[in-house]
Design a protein around this nucleic acid. Sequence first.
DNA 1: TGAATATTTGATTAATTGTTCATATGGACA
DNA 2: TGTCCATATGAACAATTAATCAAATATTCA
Lengths: 117, 117
Amino acid sequence: MDRDDVCEIEHVNEKAVQEVKSNMFDDQTILKIANISKILGDATRVKILFALSQKELCVCDLASLLGMSQSAISHQLRLLRNTNLVKFRREGKVVYYSLSDEHVIKLIEIGAAHAQE
Amino acid sequence: MDRDDVCEIEHVNEKAVQEVKSNMFDDQTILKIANISKILGDATRVKILFALSQKELCVCDLASLLGMSQSAISHQLRLLRNTNLVKFRREGKVVYYSLSDEHVIKLIEIGAAHAQE
DNA sequence: TGAATATTTGATTAATTGTTCATATGGACA
DNA sequence: TGTCCATATGAACAATTAATCAAATATTCA
């Protein structure tokens, strides 16, 4: 699309637009904000992260806790691993997961505060 | 699926699971957390919300600022309206949008802090 | 009223996503 | 080695989603 034609130029508040633009986060930061939000945009993942914020748990614990298949949990954990939100350690056959990012809990808390309204 | 069969019962740390479960947010709260996160899970919407946190802007301003079609912006604004994250006022032909939820900015700020790593 | 302009809306389409099922991997232990 | 069990992974499928295009509203102004 042609961004000069979004509307008649006289109607754009050019000064305000430029001012906001100069304060805007760079695209990479915006993308990272969107990406971590995307992670929290699924109830299963929110539950997993909240659970792990309280206790280190194995895949099996999480599956039991959430009443979901071990495969579904494992898929979600992979996502959380790939985005460095959780870490894990192996103990025999069992793999224990725990949080590796403190921001996530703040985000969940603010989301919860937002929910109470 | 059968949640009793996710794994051998003896291997679930039942006590830990129960403890976490008792502290877990209720499903409705979890859903609201996920839903507001979903909103922030898109770069266009993050930009819109961040822009509106600084200045009241019209649809046309936002389209110009983001270099996107006015229709695309309008669709996103509808979403933000429906979730009560923005409010608007009409002035003649022009509709001005502004933020109506303070939590959103905190979420974006924490997301940005997370991005700086 | 009719023309012009800002915005909204509905339908469509391509892309993304979360779960399921089946199968693979990896460690423990006989 | 072979079996068991916890976990991981790949393919497939349904559902959701964001942009585009075309068309509808709403407001101003001549």
